[in-house]
Amino acid sequence: MATRGGTIGLVMHSPWSPDASDAQARMGEALAAVSRLPRERTQLLPGFLAAQEALGWLPRAAVEHVSEHTRVPVAEVYAIATGYSELRLTPPEPGAWYVCTGVACDMAGAGALLEATPDRTRAIDCQFLCALAPVVHDDAERLYGRVTAEDLQARLAEAAS
């Protein structure tokens, strides 16, 4: 458990819901994972990644904890975090699917996938699985290759049910 009661306290202010204790536990886990790292600037990115692994994104409390733990000012820590496209400073959309629109996937029909599922899919860049184009991933970053519009619609329907 993290030693920083103050930061954890931020979570306790969140409105009560059946998930709140779960969210609090995950925040505790995230802060503890950061606290286990050496207290050095070089651990900034490992700290972000450890927190994001536990939480799915980087809420303010987690960023502040990384800042305190590495003793790097919070403004600077934010400037660094925003430099990485895979660090999420806003919560992910649950249930969203991501369609690669890199050159290989585009030519293999990524556009048709997006058109067939307009509300639930977002365009993303190359996923480095170009030989299995077109490629999509779900909100847990599980990759699927050679996807057809029918496959994707079926997966979306399955996920919604």
């Binding site: 990115l45 490992p46 990485y84 496209s85 895979e86």
Partner: peptide
């Protein structure tokens, strides 16, 4: 071992 976090320039 270190992990990156995206970006072509990285």
């Amino acid at each position: 071992v270190r992990s990156g976090a995206g970006g072509y320039v990285c």
